[in-house]
Design a protein around this nucleic acid. Structure first.
Lengths: 332, 332
DNA sequence: ACCCGGTGTGGATACGTTTTCATGCATCTC
DNA sequence: GAGATGCATGAAAACGTATCCACACCGGGT
């Protein structure tokens, strides 16, 4: 079977017009009503689909939007991706997905791949700093950051969750319950949350209770377990991501800490399993899907004036993992 | 800034050779050592990157792999996607992602989009039947199914988890614990699992204990709750997916069924939160990431003889959600 | 009658690459 | 030494589309 694809030329011949006219009709240009209808009917008849290849080459840009995430396996990013997909689908644009693994080098590599593909619109949860993203902008790509920003790249619009308010609400909630020794379990690239934590806690902040993990499960668990063992006097912990929260739950169980009696726990990001835990986890929900959707909107409606950053609200969802400060934990 | 992209022509001029030579050198064709080196050095100097646009048009196919999943939000599919991404990255191929939502129509639409993009390699967790996938094959796309197959499309190679053995192992485990009234909670597109369930259980099978949900969380919950209420005599349940398992846990808690005392639970697919549950869930683990990776391998190494279906082993991971059959549940 | 602006149309070109084909040169064979 | 064989090379032809430009035509103004 050597079926050649039907091209615009076939349509033009069949409709007895020039290729230019067919192109115009299909791209919404001007044409006389009868010509338009004839072309349309012939195109439908031959079930002609314009080749993106030809078009892309001609306009020196592939449609389509690039999406760069640290890890598609993380439900937060998966939801974000889902939002992007939803918006892109309604615009008929393909989405090229890449996983950076929070690695600057891999991110740069993927950016190179996108450039090679002629992609001219990118949504990213950036891992690298401003330098990594310089080629992108130099090449004239319209870029939008989501969920976090790259250091030193204030010129790129971003759509973010209102982390600061989220942290403040959670910390206020915990201090309201009487907690004083509150730990923060952080991950990579969340300076906003950490600084909000410090700021809200003010004089109560204890630098020893602030620990950072790398992006992996193992690292998160090790850090959480180490913290709990090293500082038995802490009564509450704020986990700055669902991976960290998972680690905290696991580590607490391993050390026989009862939640919420011995330890109150608030986790960033509402995930389906937060409700399945016992007790169900109190969380700071982020509109991950919306973030993706809005980012896609921004990147599609480019050309209009560069919009300011978008800040989406977070919400503290109180479930059962926080209680009043009990007596200090006793070593077993 | 009107920086024109550096093209192969620029490189050719700068290296004082023809464009054909540059193309050959860069594509690994034959050339004299000195020419090769000169071209390479000039290309590096200008930091030339061949445009995928031109190449794609020339060879009438976009490189790149299309990936069609029901829902990127489902961790199973997210892991599968991760496997595909990993393999694709090592091959330098972009991945175009689409979410079908388990909807035949949307799937067809996405297939159309892929065709229009000139994608000629597709990995899919198919939702539609053979008819939906007819255009794909007619257009000569190399297609590989993952995780499940489309009805009536035995001509498409597939990478699957060994569902039948997984189900058999789980059911044997449950009957070994003394359970006789075992329910099956199924989702869409998993005939393999269901038929294995029936076959393994043999005469013990009770059609009333087999219930199917649609793909959504709400539907899963409703079906699970209905089953538990309607048949208080059941003592064990096999959930045919992590969404179903989630629903089962939730419904059991809502109805005050203690796991595993009142109800033993085995879930298909090992997800991170299975360990966080209390009790931790006994699961049938599927190598989702491997499935994706292998599928990507298959689709990339096409041209070789069409390989037979690949069957990847599942594993029963015993945790704490199954116990010996207790006395029949008493109504509260 | 003439010109002029507007509109619909098609020919031609360019987008950047790969691949075919012909050419030239060097080496090998009889 | 003549012909054959091999290899490196560049000119040119696609690939399918969008767009520039020129042309024809039509109506209304002077």
């Amino acid at each position: 079977m050597n079926m050649r694809r039907t091209t615009i030329k076939d349509v033009a011949e069949a409709a007895r017009v020039g290729v230019a006219t067919v192109s115009r009709v299909l791209s919404g240009g001007s044409a006389s009503p009868e010509t338009r209808e004839r072309v349309l009917s012939v195109a439908a008849q031959l079930d002609y689909r314009p080749s993106a290849l030809g078009r892309n080459l001609r306009q020196r840009r592939s449609g389509g939007i690039g999406l760069l995430l640290p890890d598609i396996t993380d439900t937060l990013y998966a939801r974000l991706a889902d939002g992007v997909l939803t918006c892109a689908r309604s615009a008929g644009e393909p989405v090229i997905l890449g996983a950076t693994g929070d690695d600057e080098e891999r991110e740069a590599e993927l950016i190179g791949m996108l450039l090679e593909q002629g992609v001219d619109r990118v949504i990213a949860v950036p891992s690298g700093d401003g330098e990594t993203w310089a080629p992108t902008l130099r090449a004239g790509l319209t870029t939008v950051f989501a969920h976090r920003i790259a250091a030193g790249r204030d010129d790129v619009p971003a759509v973010l969750a209102d982390d600061r308010t989220g942290v403040r609400t959670a910390v206020d909630y915990l201090t309201g319950l009487g907690h004083r020794r509150i730990a923060y379990l952080g991950g990579p690239g969340q300076e906003q949350r950490l600084s909000a934590f410090r700021q809200t806690l003010g004089p109560l902040v204890d630098e020893e209770l602030i620990v950072l993990a790398r992006g992996t499960r193992d690292s998160a668990y090790a850090v959480a377990a180490g913290l709990f063992q090293h500082r038995p006097d802490l009564t509450a912990v704020l986990a700055g991501g669902n991976l960290l929260g998972e680690a905290a739950v696991l580590a607490a169980r391993e050390l026989d800490l009862r939640v919420p009696r011995d330890l109150s726990l608030v986790m960033f990001d509402d995930v389906p399993w937060a409700e399945l835990c016992s007790p169900p986890l109190t969380v700071i929900a982020q509109p991950a899907q919306d973030i993706g959707y809005r980012a896609a909107e921004l990147v599609l409606r480019a050309g209009a004036r560069r919009p300011r950053n978008v800040l989406l609200p977070t919400e503290l969802i109180v479930r059962g993992s926080c209680g009043p400060r009990g007596t200090s934990r006793s070593p077993r």
